[in-house]
Simulated assay, not measured.
Amino acid sequence: MYVHDGERYLVVDAQVHAWDGSAANQAGPAGEQFVADLHHRHRVLDRKPRPLPADEFERVGERALVADVFGYGHVDRAVLQPLGLGELFVLGFSPSAWHAELAEPLGGRLVVTGELDPGADRGVSRGLTAWVRRDSLRGFALVSARRPEARMALAESWMRRALARGEQAGAGVVHIGVGPVAHPPPGAPAWAHAGVPDRPARAAGRARWPSWAEPVRAGSALPVRARNARPLPAGGFDATELRVLAAALPRVRFVLGSGCLPTGVLCRLARLSNVNVLLTDVLVAMRTHAGEAGPALDALLAAFGPGRLLFGSGYPLVRPERLVGEAVGALRERGLEPADVQAVMGANAAGLYRIPVPDALVHGGQAARAR
């Protein structure tokens, strides 16, 4: 629990990741480039007290989550966001099945969400209700299961039925445009590109593995890794398709990343009462592009109000220890009352994900209506 100017804030970090981007799990040069770009962005955005070393950053598991997310006492609960990327990583980059294993020993401190690929065959929706109940899923992330640059089609009728079935089973939150990205989709706000390398990162110094240890493609003597792999952007989606989907499923709560669409387009979606915004991208951008990200935060507050905005750190891209304080300070500077700050920092997410919140921390404002 975070304390600021005598006020206590329950903090729910609505975007954290556990992943395995280690060399043993990389399926090709694109996987190596994806992890290298993420690490480059981490070094730009989270320099203090020091960036995570490459080997710690490449594989983030239970020990890292406990130490970096919960270890400083600021974050009370967190939501794990999945991302498969099966063509880039042999066992998946951040699969939801692994998340269920990570959450089990942590006594309910981690909320688990599943992943659905809008571009996949409709057969993936079979057994969805049993999956939700088995892993205690609270929501789904709509992401490409194969490659990050795949554009998502949200108009498929099977997807609408699957999300409705998931909501009935207890997974009523749907994340879109929420995930670890080094290269945002085309059309994203300029500040969302903060910390993104303009060209592929080059290996510096001595290689971390001997030449004889290079994995090879099946039936070939060529090494899997390549030094000139092209950076991969994140996949986008059509805001019109999202508008139709959200209007058709009023009981489902949609959570959009603040950097997944132009800010003006995102603000127009505020007309739909079941659309919420995760502030991860804009809060992180405040560190490097405050002049552009600040007005975007103001616009989102004006459009959605504090009752439909959620705090997220995007860990391990940015560790939440300092970001929690920066976020509370930015919201208080904009004149928000403690009750509204509490809504953004934790009470809204607690309502969406059915996380118990002490009555003393819900001041009867926007947070209570988010449940």
Rank of each mutant, 00 (worst) to 15 (best):
2 Y>P: 13
3 V>I: 13
10 L>M: 13
15 Q>N: 15
16 V>Y: 14
21 G>Y: 04
25 N>C: 06
32 E>A: 14
33 Q>C: 08
46 D>W: 01
47 R>Q: 14
50 R>H: 12
57 F>M: 10
58 E>M: 11
60 V>S: 00
65 L>H: 12
72 Y>P: 10
72 Y>T: 14
73 G>Y: 09
74 H>M: 04
81 Q>Y: 05
84 G>M: 15
94 S>G: 15
94 S>T: 03
102 L>T: 03
110 L>N: 00
112 V>W: 15
119 G>D: 06
126 R>A: 15
127 G>V: 10
130 A>S: 13
135 D>E: 13
140 F>E: 09
141 A>K: 15
143 V>H: 15
147 R>H: 15
148 P>H: 03
149 E>C: 04
158 W>N: 01
162 A>M: 00
163 L>Y: 12
166 G>R: 08
175 H>P: 07
179 G>N: 00
182 A>T: 02
188 A>S: 15
195 G>S: 00
199 R>A: 14
199 R>Y: 00
200 P>V: 06
202 R>K: 12
203 A>G: 15
207 A>Y: 13
209 W>R: 07
211 S>T: 13
214 E>T: 10
223 P>Q: 00
231 P>V: 07
236 G>P: 03
239 A>M: 02
242 L>M: 04
244 V>M: 04
250 P>K: 04
253 R>L: 04
254 F>E: 05
254 F>G: 00
266 L>M: 04
266 L>S: 05
268 R>K: 09
273 S>L: 00
274 N>P: 11
275 V>R: 05
275 V>N: 01
275 V>Q: 08
275 V>D: 02
276 N>A: 02
282 V>G: 00
282 V>Q: 04
285 A>S: 11
287 R>A: 03
290 A>I: 05
291 G>Q: 08
292 E>G: 07
302 A>P: 06
307 G>P: 09
308 R>F: 11
310 L>N: 06
312 G>F: 05
315 Y>L: 03
316 P>K: 08
318 V>P: 03
319 R>D: 08
325 G>Q: 06
327 A>R: 12
335 G>C: 02
343 A>P: 05
344 V>A: 00
345 M>Y: 14
358 P>G: 03
358 P>D: 04
363 H>M: 13
367 A>Q: 10
